[in-house]
Amino acid sequence: MNNLDFKQLDKIVKNTLLAVEQSKTQIFEIYEAARAEMERVNKDVERIKQEAIDIIFHVDDLEKKERRARLRLMEVSRNFNVYSEDDIKHCYDEAKNLQVSLAVAREQEQSYRRQRDELEVRLKQLKDTVEKAEGLVSQVGVVLGYLGNEMNGVVNKIESLQQSQLFGAKIIKAQEEERRRVAREIHDGPAQLMANVVFRAEVCERLIDIDINRAKQELKDLRGQVRDCLKETRKIIFDLRPMTLDDLGLVPTVKRFLDTFKGRCGAIAEIRILGDEQRLDSYVEVGLFRIIQEALNNVEKHANATLVKVVLEFRDDFVQAVIEDNGKGFDTSENVDSASFGLLGMRERINLLQGQVDIISEIGKGSKVCIKVPINKPVLS
């Protein structure tokens, strides 16, 4: 998986989470609107119910008045010789007006009943909508939390896998570069010297019977070349795997490497041992030495330092190493691991040792690498 694929996947995940979050917001807005509408409709229902009750009482009152008015009109009509024409007309108008008012009131009562029934149906629908929206908001919140955690986990795993693949590729590249370096050193050093030794041996073989003194001088020079060849070979072996690490331990190996380091870069190199020096498990000594070696190589390549201090501290449950220089430093806020196989390799080694490494640096003020590794803990596989 390349960087572009990872960026696209990360974008898809973020867009998915954003869409779910927006959906949650929209559902919540629907819930709030439905709840506000439900409260309004509930108030209308209560109002209509009260108005319906009032109109029912009003209809009952009008019915009683209209019944009395009809009875009065019947009485007046039967005794028209007793009542005047105005009395009869008044009774008739009163009864007619009451009948009209009663019809209007009954129509209003029916209208209020219909409105009440419709509002109660509407209120029930709104209650269902509010309950569903509330449930959806809760469910989407749970889903969003789950997706957020799971998606972030997936992204982190993919990112970790990508970093592992990049690290694996860099390891292969570093191995090939190391092979080329060793091959070049052997070719330019021991191989050339051995070829010269073969040539000098042939010269000595011819001179023995001709000029014994010159033959002795050639053998003396030959012995010096063999020593140089042995020295070059031992240097290559030390770089690949210091024999002193197995024979003498971490401290003598670091001291010897510092001597070589001083000869190469010309800086003053000091080492200080705190606590009781002790032999560690082989994998711990190898891992610590490689981390210290890489830190010093970084100082040599990039720091332009004139003074380097190495402190090794031995405790009962851990060993600590501090490599400090007075070089040009760098900005630790930048992602230096992605560009530096050395720093990435240091972190990978420290993870295998279940330890920790802190890199403190500031431009113009040098750098400090603090390494802490627990003792007597099994190495991670």
Rank of each mutant, 00 (worst) to 15 (best):
G329T: 02
A33I: 15
Q99S: 15
L353A: 04
T25G: 14
A321E: 01
Q165W: 05
A201K: 06
S367H: 03
I273P: 01
V104Y: 13
L147P: 01
T260L: 07
D247S: 06
T16C: 06
E134K: 10
D281H: 05
A267S: 08
M243N: 08
K24N: 09
T306M: 04
L123Q: 12
L296S: 03
V142K: 14
I236Y: 08
T233K: 00
A133C: 12
E37Q: 14
D211F: 02
D61K: 15
F6G: 00
L312S: 02
I208S: 02
I363T: 14
D337G: 00
S282H: 09
D221F: 01
H90G: 04
Y92G: 04
Q320R: 11
R214G: 05
A33R: 15
L123Y: 12
D246F: 02
Y112H: 15
K24L: 12
D246H: 05
R256F: 03
L147F: 09
I27F: 05
G329I: 03
V154D: 02
R116Q: 14
L9K: 08
L312K: 00
I236H: 07
L98A: 13
G263A: 07
V104S: 11
R116N: 13
T16Q: 07
D87T: 12
I271H: 03
C265W: 01
R272M: 03
T260A: 09
E270L: 05
I172V: 14
I237A: 13
A201D: 07
I210N: 03
A133G: 11
A303F: 06
K173D: 15
F199L: 09
M243L: 09
R72C: 04
L280Q: 07
I172T: 13
E37K: 14
P252Y: 08
D316K: 11
F6I: 04
I186Q: 04
V299Y: 04
E63W: 10
A267I: 01
C91H: 13
K372E: 15
L9E: 08
K301C: 00
H302Y: 14
D87M: 10
R68A: 14
R347F: 01
R227D: 08
E150N: 09
L98M: 10
E205W: 06
A201C: 05
E202M: 10
K127G: 04
N304R: 11
R290T: 09
A169C: 01
T306C: 05
R272P: 00
I323P: 01
K377W: 08
R181F: 14
V336R: 07
G148E: 04
V143E: 13
Q354N: 14
G266I: 04
R256M: 05
C91I: 02
R227K: 05
L102A: 12
L352N: 09
E300C: 05
Q26H: 13
L380F: 09
P378R: 14
R184Q: 07
E176L: 10
E185W: 03
S282P: 00
K328R: 12
T306K: 10
A69S: 15
V13F: 13
G135W: 07
K231Y: 06
L219G: 04
C265E: 02
E51N: 10
H302S: 02
L312V: 08
I273L: 05
R200M: 10
F57I: 01
E334H: 10
R40P: 00
E205G: 07
K14G: 00
E294N: 13
M38N: 11
K96R: 14
E348A: 13
Q125K: 11
R214E: 11
D281A: 09
I27L: 10
V251S: 05
R180A: 09
